[in-house]
Design a protein around this nucleic acid. Sequence first.
DNA 1: TGTACATCAGTGAACGCGCGTTCACTGATGTAC
DNA 2: TGTACATCAGTGAACGCGCGTTCACTGATGTAC
Lengths: 253, 253
Amino acid sequence: METVTQPESLPRAVRRRARAEITAEIVEVARRHLSTVGAAGLSLRAVARELGMASSAVYRYVASRDDLLTLLIIDSFDALGAWAEDAERPVPRERTTDRWLAICHGVRDWALAHPYEYALIYGSPVPGYVAPPTTVGPATRVTALLSGVLADLPAAPASASDGAAPDVTATGGAGDGWRAALGPTREFMPAGLSDDVLIQGLMAWMLLFGSVSFELFGHLHQVIDDDPELRRAFFTEEATRIGALVGVPAGAA
Amino acid sequence: METVTQPESLPRAVRRRARAEITAEIVEVARRHLSTVGAAGLSLRAVARELGMASSAVYRYVASRDDLLTLLIIDSFDALGAWAEDAERPVPRERTTDRWLAICHGVRDWALAHPYEYALIYGSPVPGYVAPPTTVGPATRVTALLSGVLADLPAAPASASDGAAPDVTATGGAGDGWRAALGPTREFMPAGLSDDVLIQGLMAWMLLFGSVSFELFGHLHQVIDDDPELRRAFFTEEATRIGALVGVPAGAA
DNA sequence: TGTACATCAGTGAACGCGCGTTCACTGATGTAC
DNA sequence: TGTACATCAGTGAACGCGCGTTCACTGATGTAC
């Protein structure tokens, strides 16, 4: 009766599930610790202590401190991506401006609610830590959302038509090296997009995260009013203008 | 003969100079350590060790580890500011485009040459550390340079004339809160600038540092070609387009 | 010119702490014959 | 149904390390009378 490739015995499956649950609990506690102590101060022992287990026991679930960091990074990228997706989902597909704003605000709201996780993924690299390739997938979820909106724009996205600056395309003497630099981006983007669209898109992406980082890391202190409502209004205006850089119409859709 | 307010005895002055020299040496060593170990890992004991003095001796010069961090932060802002100033200085005043590019490249070059100092001032905040007001002055040097260029633009800076997107000024329904949020900025800028000019300037500023941060913190991996020359060309194009956002002409001046 | 005193850079030991990781082990649970 | 074996979560002690900060002190140098 036993087939040759019996898939997995039941007790083994139970154990595996338990493993996964405890690993999740470890990551969860680590995430909380991150919020008080930062990435560099994160300690396996402290996590174990809070979970009431011997520090050595954690090594059954996590290979090393760096491994735990990796789990946290993936988790954070995923949480941010999911949050932004949730923010966009209820908006009807044709309301591209509102979708764009929803995504931008989604990123900012998540960052404000999870400042240390945001700093973990968009702040200074942890010295001595190298992110493994496992982390790149989750990192692209927001990018995918943003370019999804651009793909749904009615007219030719950006280029000479709307808000974007068209006459800048030809560089002032510096040459065309920047076009070659776009190589890796072109791999991941739908074919046929002009260099101009690509670089404007990248700049919009960097400006979005640059703005959120500046706000979160305190560089808007004594620059933009501290009042949360005003900050939000300022960001809305910013996000609108960022959208305009890539052809998202500014007026209400 | 002795006047009432004798200014300072010579030996006291000598001692003071010695103090300043040793303090500078401590900061210098700390800066080097920063490059291998990051802000969170910076250790007074390690610095003392390298200087060949007892760890307790450092406390004659520096009140605490946080105090040393503050010195490093001020130092870094100053170094970045000086570097950018040096980059702009040789460019003739009327060549505004070249000045703009020189400043942008100055920021980037310094950041690439001093990644950990850059991360110290523009990366994640160090948990538990609060920057004292002493640090704000040096932090504004680059900003001053950038707005200096804008002030020298021939026509009305930005607004409806050139590359910037003019029709975005009126927001799509979100209201005018963002104008109020500009309050602190208006204090530090020459009077008479429109809200539009201010917000575009802020966005240019954030995009400049956002771009440098993204490159330095590894977010351009698999996005922009790794080749340093191509990266530089890409940044030149970016800086040109950032300038266009605030009315810096794109063509060769 | 000489002596009592003040200043102050630097020492070295100590306090009390936390860390990552390894290792031999116990003991419960499942597996194969 | 029963027994020998394998798996594996979890323990607790240990290794070897580094940290920030304090404190009583030495000893050179300058100062005031």
